[in-house]
Design a binder for these strands. Structure first.
Lengths: 236, 236, 236, 236
DNA sequence: CATGAATGAGCCTTCATTCAT
DNA sequence: GATGAATGAAGGCTCATTCAT
């Protein structure tokens, strides 16, 4: 078993088939001209730049021109690939979070091991692949801009929250079905699990980076959190 | 026992030692005329209006003119009491988050009952007194504007996060000392408890009001969360 | 009989009661402060500036900042009185054309004389009061921007075209009722009359000012046009 | 008699002596391949597309990319034939307005019948051949963009207004010479006739398509207009 | 010749803040 | 103290035009 999800950096996010680009990349020829290669690379470069700036400065405080400049293109070019700043926001969410659920779901299917192990593995993997990267800042961004971009919240709910909730729920159900866990309300339980993830996200991106906070070891916290939960769920 | 936390209104927040009013409130004459009393009440009315609008519309989406109008004064008057919109924001945070912990700590001292009961009482009381009111929106505000007002984050950390953490930690320690709980890392445990509170805050103020979300019963969730934790902490 | 319509300049357009200003002028005190007097004068000054610039440069080519500067205020001030550039456009139409119909209709009621004289008087008065002023450029503006601002066309239709059509129709009906004219289709007839007015408008503002055109004496043309029409309408 | 004006399509406008193509059409080889013929047809196709879009959406609201797409070529190709959007606009005007008067003048020479009939025939023919087609939109375009393209106005004056004026003037003179009409100022009279044509143009292209206007039957209006005029001109 | 990716100048509108009254 | 008219900086988005391929 080689890991739940391939380690994610925006650089490696190639399969843009579900993104919202205007002009789909047409050819996969080996002999790509310089311009063509640039064109193919543009969306990814822009998404990288956007994620980085959004996370560090906030969405509203980031000018589209800055994103473009950071990706080495002009303002107009950005709008060639994303119809608006909000659309760019959604694409960032999709590329960094939403697009990973198929792979994660598949990992769930293939996982061999106890359900408690699986839960811990899921949480720690989340930290290693998302939590410890810029992508973890997206959740904070969505929350922060919820008032200004309700549509983004809906998108995030559909594409990230619900799939995530479902995934955790299936894991818990696996434990119940196998007899590892007693019967319990899995919806409430998932909220308790996810709360730890949200907590780390906000800790990292809203608190720790702006106040010299008492440290929190995310991985230890997640493991501990899962262990506590599992204690409560086990058959007595 | 008359409640864990005194119900908070800005009117009652008198000790403004940390606020930034330009014009200090005139000395408390006995014969206050109606106008003078209004004058003294101005800051509080503005803070109330600001909190309400900030929570419902977000900080940047709230116009100072709306705050002023909501408080029944003109735009210019607001700037008589607060040097800037940022200053108003900080004052709102300060007025609504500081100064409750003494009462809470006292309740802790006086509490009669098991530690698990105490934890549940603490959580449910938080929901009834804070979580279900506008005050719960402040946390979301602080997180959202963390990038723009790091100073507020530091203040929030000192005045809210740390005292809250300490309070929970003392409760847990009470359980350990009494033999109700086994020995465990109380710092990590507190994070797990607090994560549920943060979760509800963000759920209410960033998600639920902008997306037609699958419902979450906060009180049930909190009780469930505490029970799970307690299971893990009990002496086996 | 002292004229059909008081001679119109924007300076003299005082009764703004039907305009679209945001903040209605509140007091009519004699002792107006400098600021208050400026405030009352603002809308008129802005409308004057707007009409002048719109007519000379076209609507799209005129920047709101230019209008503001031309009226001696800043860009933001303009938006204090008009909610958008389009709104400013409508207000210009209203102040210079639409608002005059009540007076014009009243003149119609009070007119003593033959109907042919009345028609000629109406046409010549139009020329003297509107046609020969900047206000005549409005029609050309509306036509030019019809594609970009269909709402303005509707507004112009309701507030100018229809009232104008109705006024002319009543005059013609007066001639029929009095036996001066035979029975005929007054709607078609009004179009024929109005076509002369439109012709002059376009001549002045689209052709003459951009090409060294063979001259057209508007007043002579209008008199001639009316005489021709009248010939055709008289009882034989 | 086969029509007053040959029906106009850009395809048939060959003599481009006044146009501004960068790349002159290659010499007319006998063995034109399909591609070469397309190449030669490009300018005409672009002009057709441009006319259609300019008339329906207005000049500024029409994107050059749309014109190119409508003609089946890419944006860049358009600029191979026309140095700028303005240049394209001028070429459209030129291609559609020049070169019809020779045919019209000839029809005038050959016309058999009374002068009033001739006038009516001229007006109705204009409606059937020009007024009811896209070509009638050109006049509105020229007027609308007069501020931005004074040069076009001059061209329009020389190539359309003056020839048209002269043609009508000759018709009227025919009536005077034949004794059908009395002596009168034919210049003023022509303006009265032409005003009806302009009126229909603007009605169609600036008003009717953007406001749900009270209907105007163009043909009935024109006949009526001519009849009225003729009444006034006849010998009493 | 043809393409279409890239450019960047241009503009309306918002709103926190000031200050004359 | 209170008012509210005035300010002007700031930014998302469009689209004619260029030019490397």
């Amino acid at each position: 078993m080689n890991g739940w999800v391939g380690y994610i950096t925006n650089q490696s996010v190639i399969n843009m088939h579900t993104s919202t680009f205007h002009s789909p990349v047409n050819s996969e020829t080996n002999s790509v001209h310089k311009r063509e290669r640039r064109k193919e690379a543009r969306p990814g470069e822009l998404l990288d730049a956007a994620l980085s700036l959004f996370v560090s400065k906030g969405f509203s405080a980031t000018k589209v021109e800055d994103v473009a400049a950071s990706a080495g293109v002009s303002k107009g070019t950005l709008f060639l690939y994303f119809s608006s700043k909000e659309d760019l926001f959604k694409a960032v969410i999709r590329a960094n979070l939403a697009d990973h659920f198929p792979a994660w779901n598949q990992e769930f299917e293939e996982f061999q091991g106890t359900t408690p192990d699986m839960l811990e593995y899921a949480m720690v993997s989340w930290w290693q692949r998302i939590g410890s990267t810029d992508a973890s800042g997206i959740t904070k961004l969505v929350m922060s801009e919820a008032n200004n971009f309700p549509e983004v919240v809906q998108f995030y709910d559909q594409e990230v929250i619900r799939p995530g909730h479902e995934l955790f729920k299936r894991i818990l159900q696996r434990g119940i079905d196998s007899g590892e866990f007693a019967q319990f309300n899995t919806d409430l339980a998932v909220h308790s699990l996810v709360s730890a993830i949200l907590y780390i996200n906000m800790w990292k991106h809203a608190l720790a980076c702006h106040a010299s906070l008492h440290t929190l070891n995310p991985e230890a916290f997640l493991r501990n959190h899962v262990h506590l939960m599992v204690q409560g769920w086990r058959k007595s």
